[in-house]
Nucleic acid binder design. Sequence first.
RNA 1: GGGCGUGUAGCUCAGUUGGUUAGAGCGCAUCCCUGAUAAGGAUGAGGUCACAGGUUCGACUCCUGUCACGCCCA
Length: 1044
Amino acid sequence: MFNEISSKVSFPGMEEEVIKLWEELGTFKKSLEIRKNSKEFVFYDGPPFATGLPHYGHLLAGTIKDIIPRYQAMRGHYVSRRFGWDCHGLPIEALAQEALGLAGAPAIQEAGVDVFNEQCRSMVTKYVEEWEKTVTRMGRWVDFENDYKTMDTPFMETIWWVFSQLWKQDRIYKAHRIMPYSWKLNTPLSNFEAGRNYQDVQDPAITVRVKLLDFEFENASALIWTTTPWTLPSNLAICAGPDIDYVAIKDKETHQIFVLAQARLSAYYKKEEEYEILKSYKGSELKGLKYEPIFDFFADNENSFQILNDDFVSTEDGTGIVHMAPAYGEDDYRICREVDIPLVDPLDEDCVFTAAVPDYAGQFCKDADKAIIKALKHGGKLIHQSTIQHSYPFCERTDTPLIYRAIDAWYVKVEDLRERMLKNNEGVHWTPDYVGEKRFANWLADAKDWNISRNRFWGSCIPVWVNVDDKDDMICIDSIEKLEELSGQKVEDLHKHFVDEILIEKDGKTYKRTPEVLDCWFESGSMPYAQNHYPFENKEHFEANFPADFIAEGLDQTRGWFYTLMVLSTALFDKPAFKNVVVNGMVLAEDGLKMSKRLKNYPDPTLVINKYGADALRLYMIYSPVVRAESLRLSEDGVKNSLRHLILPWWNAYSFFITYANIDGWTPEQSVPERDNLMDRWIQSSLARLEQQVTDAMDRYDLQAAVRPFVAFIEDLTNWYIRRSRRRFWKTEDDTDKVQAYSTLYEALLGLTKIAAPFTPFISETIYQNLKTDDMPESVHLCDFPTAADAKRDEVLEGQMAMVMSAVEQGRTLRAEYKLKNRQPLAKMHVVCDDEKLLANIQALESLISDELNVRAVEFGTDSSELATIQAKPNFKQLGPKLGPLMKKAVPLINSLTDEQIASISAGETVAVELEGKTIKLTDADIEIVRNPKEGMAVSAEGALVVGLDTQLNDDLISEGLAREFVNKVQNLRKEMDLEITQRIHIAFSSDESIELAVASHRNYIEGETLALSCEKAANGGEKITEIDLNGHACAVSITAAVE
RNA sequence: GGGCGUGUAGCUCAGUUGGUUAGAGCGCAUCCCUGAUAAGGAUGAGGUCACAGGUUCGACUCCUGUCACGCCCA
C-alpha cells in the first residue's frame, strides 16, 4: 500500500516536511559520501556580503547554484559545495560605524582601529542565521558548517601568499589615486563618504592666458578657465578636445591673439565685431603645441607644458581648454600619466604650500587663491575674473571643503596580462555565450591596472613593511611564519589593529607596515586558493581540482568577481579559474523598475515561498530568460502559474495513481516488464525523450531549455496518457492489461521524480518517498540521473501518436463548430489520408479516436476527394533559389494547377508550365498540397489528414446521449454527497417517457458507470430528490448509499 | 559619451541555416468535458514582429541608422 494522499495538499507545508526529512536522514551529507570516490565536479561559490537579508537576486543565483550541482551529483560526481561569506569592506564598516556612532574615517581613528574592527567582526554574523534559513528553505543544499569566511586567519594568510606571488612577478607597484582628502583631519575619505555632505559655495572662476610657443601667430595665447586658482602653480599641461572646433581670434580692442573653443566665443564677447577670426582648428591639430609655464616653479618638469587631447573636455563652460594639475584632478592625473608627465604636489599633509612653491609657502592652498590671482593680474595673464556658485563636497566631521588630491595607492599591473587573459577566456564556456565572447572579452581587452589598496580599516592588510627612513626599501611578507621570523613575535590575527603594531627590525633598519588594506575584490578573486588555505594546506587536492567546473553569478559581476578571478588565476597559474559559468540577469519588480523597499513594488520572498512553495518559485525563475542574463520582471502571478501549470497537474497524476493503486492493492512488486499497449510504449518513449532533452540542455548549462520539455511531458502524461487510459485502471478484473498500465504509470512517475529532482527537489522527494521500494536509495537525491533513454525511445510511435492527436483535435473542433457536445454519441467519422502507411498507423489506434470523440465507428480511407478539394501551393524554399526573380509570377500559376496536374505530380511525374517564355518543370518537391474542406460538410483538414464527422442523429444515438447525460448528473451528485469512490449506490428517478426508455435500454451501462446496484423508476423518487435537466427533459433523481 | 544586451498579442515569453497563415501560456469572451478536481479541453477576439532605410525573388530573421529600456564602464 502507498500512503494515502490528502485531498488538501499544501505544497509549502509539504516542503517543510521534506526539509525535516533531509535533516533527519542527513541526506545532503550522504549525497556527498556516496560519491566520495567519484570524479569531482568542482563548484566555487561567490561570497555574498551578509549585511542584509537575501533578496530575489540571491535566491535566483542560489537556485542555479543548486540545480547544476544536484544534477552533476546525480550524474555520478562528487560535488562539494562550500558556502562563502564576504566579511570585509565598506558595507560592514558602514554598519559598524552606525552602531558606534562614528561619522567617518577620522572618527574611527580617534575611537581606535581596534575598537572599530572588533565591532565589525562582531557584526559580520548578524544576518548569517537569516541567510541560512532562507537558503535552506529554498531547497538549496550547501555546506554551511564547512563555510569559508574572508576574515578567517587561514584565508587571510593565503591572501598574503597571493599578493606575494604578484610581488615576485614585479606586478605590484605604487602610484597615486585622486581621492577626496580632509585637510583638517589629514586623511583621505572614500568617494562614498565624500558624497554625503555637499554644500553650495562660491569660488573664484578665472580665465587665464598661456603663451603659445612656436605657434603660427606670434604672441598668441590659449585661454584656460579654472575655479581652483591654487592649482595653477602646479599646472603641467593644458588639454583640448580632439573633435572640438577651436579658433584663433584677434581681440580688436587689445590686439591680442587668443585660442579658444568656437562654441565659447559668445561667453567672452558680446558682439562679433569685437574680434576677428584668424583661423579655425580641430583640437587634434593643436595637440603637441608648447606653451610657456604660467609659473616657473616646475619649469623643468619632464614632458610638461604642452597641449594634450582628451574626449572628456566639454564646451559647457570655460574656454574649451582645460588646465591640468595632475595631483589634483582625476582626469588630469589620468591624461598626464598617459604621456608620462610626473606629478608635482607642493602641498603638505595640512594642504599648506611647501617650499617647493616659495611665493606661497606656508599658506593654506585655498587661502592662496587671492595672492595667485593678484600675481596673474600683475603678469598680464588674467583675462577675466568672476565668481561661481556650485555644489561642493565637504568633510562630514569638520565641515571643511574637501580637497581632491593624489594619494599613495597600490596597483596590480594588469595591462600586460590582457592577451593571456583573453586566451584563457577562450577556454571558458559562457551561458549565454555573448557575455563571454563580447562583453567580458571586450572588458579584458581594455583591462586597466587594478587599484587594490583602500585607506580603510576592516580588511586584509597589504603585507608590505616599509623602511621608515627609505620608502623605497620594502619587505613583502608571504606567510605568518615569515612575519614571526622577521619580527620575533607570535602572530595570530592578521587584521590591521594587530599587524600594524608589529615592527620588523632588520640589519639595523626599522620597517613599519604600509597602512592600507586590500580591496575586498582581491579577496573574492583569491577565493579558489584562500578557501583551501593553499599552498599551506591541501596543495595536491587543490592542484588536481583547479580550475572549477562551474560558477554562477549575476551579470553585474562581469567587472566584479568574474574579472578578479580571471586576473589572479592568469597571473598565478596562467589558467582561467572556471570552465563553465552561468550568468543570470537582474531581477526587477513587476513594474519593470528596480525592486525598492521604499516603493514596496515587490512581494516579500518569504511570503511568496510560504504561499506557493519554493519549488514553484524555483521553476518560475529558471523557466525564464533570466538564466540567460536577461532581466526578469518578477510577478507573483508568474509563480502561481508555474504551480498551476506544472506542479499541480503532476501532483494530480500522482494522486490518481495512488488512489487507484491502493483500491486495487497494486504494489511495485507486481510490476511486469511487458508492454502490449501502444499507449504504454508511447508514454515510455515520451519519458525517454524528456530524459534526452533535459540531459542535452543541462550539459550545455541551458537551464531554461532544460525546463521547457517538462511542460510537454506533463501535458502528454496528464492530458493524453492518463486521460485516455483511465478505464484501464477502473476495470474490475485484475488482468494483464491493468497490471501493465499500473507498471507503466508507476515507472513514468518514478522516472519523472528523478529527472525533476534537481529542479523541484521538494515535490520530487515527496512523491519519490511514497513510490520507492525498500531496495531503492532512501532519497531521490541519492539516485542516479536516468540516462539510458535511447533504448525506450520510439520516434515512429511518437509520430503516429501525433497524427492521432491531430485527428482527435480536428474532431473536437468540428464538434464545437456544429454544437455537438461530446456526451452525444455520433454514428461515425471519416479519417482520410492518402499515404497508406500513415493511415495504417493511425488505424492501429482507432479505439483512442472513437473513444475520445464518442463516435461508434471510424471509417478510414485514402481518397479525400469526397470531403475536400486539393490545391497546390508553391514550396518557396525549394523553388525560390531555382526561379529567382520569376518566383513571384510563378505563384498564381502553381496555385491554379488542376487536380489532374497535382495528381500526376504527386504520383512522381513532372509537369511543365510556361512562364514568360520559359518552361518550368515542376516535381513533387516543388509543391505542397493543401486540402480545403468542402463547403456544407463537417470536415476539417490539417496537413495530410482530412477528418469528417457524420452529424446525423437518430433515436438510438439520442437515447444513448440521454443515458450518458444521466450518468454525468449522477456522478456529480455522488461527488456533492462526498461519497467514497468505491461506494455502491441505489438510484431512484422519475421523468418522462424518453428518459425512461433511455435508462431502460442502457441500464447496464448506467449501473456500471455509477456503481449503482439498482436504477429504478420511483413514483415520487426517494429521499433528497434533486431536479436535473437532461438535454431539455426534466428529471427528479435521488441516490442513496447502499448498505454493504 | 563607450561596450554589451533587450524591444514580437493587454501581460510573460517561444520563433531553428531568410521561405509567404508569426506561435504558446496567462487574462478576456463563448462553449465543452469531468470521480485526477487549488482541475482540464476547444474556439474566438487581440500583432504595421520598436521605427526608418538597405540587401534579396522573398526579411521577425541579414546589414546600416534612429528611438526606448537594462547592465557595466567613463
